[in-house]
Design a protein around this nucleic acid. Sequence first.
DNA 1: AGCGAAACGGACGGGGGCGTCCGTTAGCTT
DNA 2: AAGCTAACGGACGCCCCCGTCCGTTTCGCT
Lengths: 189, 189
Amino acid sequence: MTGRLTHPTRSDARYNREHILDVAREVFATEGLTAPMREIARRAGIGPATLYRHFPTKELLATEAFAAQMAACETVVDEGLADPDPWRGFCSVIERICELHARDRGFTAAFTTSFPHAVDFTARRERTLALVAKLAGEAKKSGRLRQDFVLDDLVLVLMANGGIHAASPATRVAASRRFAALVIRAFEA
Amino acid sequence: MTGRLTHPTRSDARYNREHILDVAREVFATEGLTAPMREIARRAGIGPATLYRHFPTKELLATEAFAAQMAACETVVDEGLADPDPWRGFCSVIERICELHARDRGFTAAFTTSFPHAVDFTARRERTLALVAKLAGEAKKSGRLRQDFVLDDLVLVLMANGGIHAASPATRVAASRRFAALVIRAFEA
DNA sequence: AGCGAAACGGACGGGGGCGTCCGTTAGCTT
DNA sequence: AAGCTAACGGACGCCCCCGTCCGTTTCGCT
């Protein structure tokens, strides 16, 4: 069913679809998920109807737009797991995911908010969190991570990281970095 | 000039003013600062015009409504300073302020956001922060607080604490408590 | 080249919030 | 108790966003 939507036959439709996603990524990153659909349409140089035809709901658009970010999250966790030193891997996961969220306002919202209809997105999130849990287990065994760490602590940290608002993205990333360093100190045994 | 506004001559006006403030506190606490002015008027059982007559801008209303919360913040800091153990005082400030913010969605926003026109509000905030700085200095001298703590770390924590969203206020307060414990561990030498 | 279908986008109606006007109500004064 | 005036609130116009309809354009196939 989605085959028709994901692979339009006509070239202009195919181009528009990708172009919309590019613009949506940029707009969501700077303005957040609350950005109007119209704004995305405007910047993409298309009419609202075209936007809605490609992505009937904002949830669908966001899910597709953040697929790359989600993949980046998974990569970060995978690389953390691959690190021979589990504590170092654990720290890198916190640092890099915090930075990912700081760079992209919308992604934080998309990650935290669970859209009712974006089922596969929450599924991927849960799967990734499960991998983090595994990494945390190894880090605990190595003795560097506090034994009383629970996965909810990480969720808490991500939510809190989302609360770091700042005028410029640069400041936000810097603040987020400091924040990551802070919580890592808190998690260290 | 504000004398007329703060002390209306007619009894119904005087009552309405206080009633609006009560309702605004409740609405801001549960719905956040983004709550429509209309909602406050509705719950107060008055027309929008009456609300706007008493408080021409949302900033003015919020500033007045959160005066009590602001005072509570100051009390918390004062009591922290009064504690003979500066580290314990410092911890109590973090815990209690985080809880204050968790209980009141709007206050977080009002505290973090600097309204362009609510001059005296930011002034009180700065004054309070200065007191916290003093407390932090003593806590450092006692050796329990890390030497590299800076006041910006606390601001960062408050912003991050504001990012902790949750369905029920109870959950939010609980999460905020865990968060406070987390950052205290990070701040301990 | 010409046709059919797919894709486009201007325009519409609906909903909600905002701030204000002005006719009405009701408190205070003498 | 009667009038003056402050205070009230329903209703208005404005703007922004949403999602959709439908007439027009353009692509791709033959």
